[in-house]
């Protein structure tokens, strides 16, 4: 090859790279493209157009759903918009009605309250209802519906009913029966919550989900510990006529052996006689407990 041609090739290659860099610098795709727009909204149309690639297309929509959820969660915008999440999950599960994880995780994503998610437990239940009709392992979806009612809507009647329904499927695990009973009797109590999360931690096949369950269990442990510490502080106040200034007061009084720490190792805070989690503890915020339990 003659060298002028070579130079031209190098210059043009450089030009391509440089222009792509300019494109990136000015913010990449124009607003309105890719991320915010679904090319086709009708699941029926997509299914027809997919030819024999419906499963693969479902995978792609699923990856898009995960990306959309994750990216929006991490974005710095003041109001996080998860507008596409349900449509993407709907497309995914229409293209591949057996996509178990898309239903289960989709429901988790949809239920998550703002700003961590869209806070739409109703859509989560709708998605899982479709799963019940379309796929096998139905007890799992019924249990997941129960979970949404239990955790995100605090509707323990409904939750208990769905856990019972899940337990009635022939291949359901045994632990669903006591879960349904406990939920009905004392839904929202730490005992029933602990049971629910323990099952999830035991059966979760995904690390993220298992860690979430373990965090919830630690929160429950922390809530128990907080109750005990508050009792100790109350006893101190009654005995001395005033709240302790710090944990050392309690240690000197022989009520504690040292500075108490939560299950993640962060010390509990004591100020003006009120006990709380350290603001830096990853267990924040603790879930609200239903009034009737307390």
């Amino acid at each position: 090859m003659r060298w002028p041609l070579l130079v031209l090739l190098v210059v043009l290659s450089g030009g391509v790279v440089a222009l792509q860099a300019v494109y990136e610098r000015r913010g990449g795709a124009l607003a309105g493209s890719t991320e915010q727009v679904l090319y086709v909204r009708s699941p029926d149309a997509v299914k027809r157009l997919a030819l024999s690639y419906d499963a693969l297309l479902a995978d792609i929509y699923w990856i898009r759903a995960v990306q959309h959820f994750g990216r929006t969660r991490l974005s710095t915008e003041p109001v996080k918009q998860y507008n596409l999440l349900y449509s993407l999950l709907d497309l995914t599960t229409s293209l591949d009605p057996h996509f178990r994880v898309a239903y289960l995780f989709g429901a988790i994503f949809l239920s998550e309250p703002a700003p961590g998610g869209p806070g739409r437990p109703d859509l989560a239940v709708a998605l899982l209802q479709r799963a019940l009709q379309a796929s096998s392992r139905q007890w799992e979806f019924a249990q997941a519906i129960g979970f949404v009612h239990y955790w995100w809507r605090q509707d323990y009647q409904q939750a208990a009913a769905w856990f019972q329904r899940a337990a009635d499927y022939p291949d359901a695990p045994e632990w669903l029966v006591p879960l349904a009973a406990t939920t009905l009797a004392q839904g929202g109590s730490r005992e029933s919550s602990r049971m629910l999360w323990q099952q999830i931690a035991r059966t979760a096949e995904d690390d993220w989900y298992r860690n979430e369950a373990l965090r919830r269990l630690r929160q429950l442990d922390a809530m128990d510990q907080l109750d005990r510490l508050r009792a100790v502080v109350e006893a101190f106040r009654q005995a001395r006529g005033g709240p302790p200034a710090d944990w050392d007061d309690l240690r000197r009084a022989g009520d504690l052996r040292g500075t108490p720490v939560d299950p993640t190792g962060a010390p509990y805070r004591l100020s003006d006689g009120a006990v709380s989690l350290d603001s830096a503890s990853p267990l924040n915020p603790l879930p609200a407990e239903p009034a009737r339990i307390r």
């Binding site: 024999s52 499963a55 693969l56 479902a58 995960v66 990306q67 994880v101 096949e205 690390d207």
Partner: peptide, 23 residues
Amino acid sequence: LIGQLTAGQDVKIIKDLGLAAIA
């Protein structure tokens, strides 16, 4: 790539992709 992008669906997606690609 899929291991980085999605939550634990590698085997299903690789099967989907592999079969579609063979076809």
